[in-house]
């Protein structure tokens, strides 16, 4: 149980670092570094934060099926769908600011991760 919690914390930390780094890097920086950080973040960042928020272990407890493939699939697909919808909205409104859009997705991700963190702290305090 402790190792599972540690694993979740590690994933949350990696996503948080990627989201934090994506905010400045989406505006400036060496192209290779920006690609190495912003690319994976757009691919899976927001969706992973959402899955952490949903607490996959609880789904697993309830249903018993292997939840990991679905969690990974949702993490990737939600991230891609969010970026697709955001970019489409920008294109149709004539407000094309992709760097700002990445920053917005990063802030959304950080918000979800903060909620996850707050919840786990509350639980720890209660127990």
């Amino acid at each position: 149980m402790a190792s599972k919690r540690k694993r979740v914390s590690t994933i949350a930390a990696v996503v948080a670092v990627a989201a934090l780094a994506s905010i400045p890097l989406s505006f400036t920086g060496p192209a290779e570094l920006r690609a190495a950080v912003v690319g994976p973040f757009l691919l899976a960042g927001p969706g992973t934060a959402l899955m952490l928020f949903l607490k996959p272990p609880r789904i697993r407890k309830g249903t018993g099926f292997e939840v990991l493939p679905l969690a990974v699939a949702i993490a990737v697909s939600v991230s891609l769908a969010a970026a697709i919808l955001l970019s489409t909205a920008m294109l149709y409104t004539g407000f094309w600011h992709p760097s700002a859009a990445v920053a917005l997705l990063a802030m959304f991700t950080l918000g979800l991760l903060a909620a996850v963190d707050r919840r786990s702290r509350r639980k720890e305090a209660a127990s």
């Binding site: 920086g29 690609a35 690319g39 891609l80 697709i84 489409t88 992709p98 990445v102």
Partner: peptide
């Protein structure tokens, strides 16, 4: 149906590649 191309353009613009 520009969603996918918007995604790629967002990636391109936001990474400078």
């Amino acid at each position: 149906w520009p969603g996918f191309f918007g995604l790629l353009a967002m990636l391109s613009n936001a990474t400078g590649i």
